[in-house]
Design a protein around this nucleic acid. Structure first.
Lengths: 232, 232
DNA sequence: TAGATTGTTAATCGATTAACAATC
DNA sequence: TAGATTGTTAATCGATTAACAATC
């Protein structure tokens, strides 16, 4: 179904992880921790503007309404060292978080599907620090091709393969309709993309080495709606 | 800082949960389960269109690339009963999921902040089943007020309190800039909102009974970027 | 020195996975 | 009946929380 003839056909199988992959996984920072780190970073940037040179885990915990022990543990993953009684150097901590999360690098990404959500992300990144930079967007719809959204041109989907070859982009953002998601994801993988931020509701089946971050709006809506029902 | 004089000032404290609240919490469906349920629902709707009258957990598991035991456990929370060797009746299962998630009800929501992300969600809901219906959007920016986005009018933020009084809306979607988030959230609570879908990076401090679903884009970007670094 | 905070190790809690009996 | 699948109970795994020693 793909529009491309892949250079080297990747295998779309669900293989069990080998031992080296298990080892790598075991060393990984827990996902809940990673999700909390940007929150610390935003808070610290505010704190820094207020001129505070040091910050302790209990103060962060009080402000962000979370457990100080957890703050200490979360921050320890970045490799930063604090001083008893003093806390952490604000500047060093910000730097460590940015470094660890990759927010200080330029993480270039392609976006496929310049619909509502896709357009929003393109416009959004101009104002909000997402940690990544969309350098080109693609769509099959001729009405969308040529448009400039958030400073990014929407290109014809056929140009994806050629451009990927030249630019060596590693991240793909998937904001297509659900039915196109699997095919586009496979195209992205064949273009050399290593990580896919999937905003569709489709369950992507891709090689194990490809990193997939699912961010389906309806999942979060489901949690909200059910909790509301529970509370009634 | 609020633009409103609240009718009855709510207390913004972090109180420990009483026993009845603990009990309620203990009976709650795990959040990971809730996040998976919409995925099952979308898959089942596709299956139903293909004319399959029954579906088993192993088949769902294979298609969605997850453990069949987990599928059985997840589905059991909806109260549905399956038949050994046969599986579940497709139609009944879809109905049970929609009922359980509240996707078959009309869950009316207010949206505050008609910027990029807010506009996207307004346009998005026309095409995608989010399980909720935005009935009005609010913004302080006069350039945005009066605009029609995705069939929804953007109203002046000052009208929020009056309209909430009349319409008895329970869900608020927060897509303002970070610095305005806490104040707007408090306004929403004072308007009678029970659940807030928070797309900002602000950590909201609200009464314990208010349901807050945080969906900050940078959290998910952080997970993606770090996993990419890990894999290199 | 005294006390607050870090950082590590142990205990708890909750979700996932495995085992297995019930049953269609 | 035999075998596949449900549904429940137990074991495992991982994250959070608690305890406490180290230290500035």
């Amino acid at each position: 179904m793909s529009i491309f003839e892949p250079k080297s056909k990747v295998e779309f199988q669900q293989k069990k992880m080998g031992n080296s992959e298990v080892d790598k996984k075991n060393n990984q920072v827990p996902e809940p921790t990673l999700r909390r780190l940007p929150g610390y970073l935003f808070f610290l940037q505010k704190i820094k503007e207020e001129g505070m040179l040091n910050i302790s885990a209990p103060v962060i915990g009080k402000s962000l309404n979370c457990d100080p022990t957890q703050v200490v543990k979360d921050l320890s993953f970045t490799g930063i060292k604090g001083k008893p009684k003093v806390g952490y150097n604000t500047y060093e901590l910000i730097h460590a978080l940015e470094e660890f999360l990759g927010f200080n690098r330029t993480n270039e990404a392609f976006l496929v599907g310049a619909g509502n959500l896709g357009s929003a992300l393109m416009a959004y990144q101009k104002h909000q620090s997402l940690g990544l930079k969309i350098i080109a967007a693609f769509d099959v719809d001729n009405n969308k091709v040529g448009q400039l959204i958030g400073g990014i041109y929407v290109l014809d989907y056929n140009k994806l393969f050629h451009l990927a070859d030249r630019l060596n982009v590693k991240i793909g953002i998937l904001t297509t309709p659900n039915h196109a998601a699997q095919d586009v994801a496979e195209d992205l993988v064949n273009c050399g993309i290593k990580a896919i931020w999937n905003f569709t509701s489709a369950n992507l089946v891709l090689p194990a080495k490809i990193i997939v971050q699912n961010t389906s709006m309806s999942s979060y809506a489901a949690v909200l709606l059910r909790r509301l029902t529970d509370s009634e």
